[in-house]
Write a protein that binds this DNA or RNA. Structure first.
Length: 117
DNA sequence: CTGATGACTATAG
DNA sequence: CCTATAGCCATCA
């Protein structure tokens, strides 16, 4: 990879890959975790460029309101909701309670250990 | 080059 | 809760 963008996309993928099943993170949260500051839009752009069949858990990324940012009418949007529900994430009035499901990096590592072990 | 467009968000009213 | 605004920045027409 040569473009700085490729590097950014990689960072985003790596961060998203750390979100535990059954939990979610917001675009802005991923941006900060990836060292992108407030560039939340870049996160969405990076996820959009994921190849089909990617192992990256893109479905665990939602917007700051706890909603899926893809159109309900879209195939991907329905796929995202389906995957989240199958992981135990509950939707109420089309929204996810972030206070309950939001991924908290430091706390998770404290409870479940480092990312790989 | 210019302007519009987003898998976004924080803030203000 | 809702609308409006302003940052943000790679892409695309």
């Amino acid at each position: 990879m040569k473009s700085p963008w490729a590097e950014v996309a990689k960072r985003v993928r790596d961060t998203v890959a750390r979100i535990p099943a059954g939990q979610v993170a917001t675009y802005g949260q991923i941006a900060r975790e990836s060292g992108l500051g407030r560039r939340a839009r870049m996160v969405g752009r990076a996820l959009r460029s994921l190849p089909d069949g990617s192992e990256v858990p893109w479905h665990r990324v939602v917007n700051a309101r706890g909603q899926i940012s893809l159109p309900d009418s879209s195939e991907a949007g329905q796929e995202q909701r389906r995957r989240l529900e199958s992981e135990g994430v509950v939707f109420r009035a089309g929204r996810i309670d972030l206070a309950e499901y939001r991924w908290r990096p430091s706390l998770d590592e404290l409870l479940w250990g480092p990312p790989d072990s």
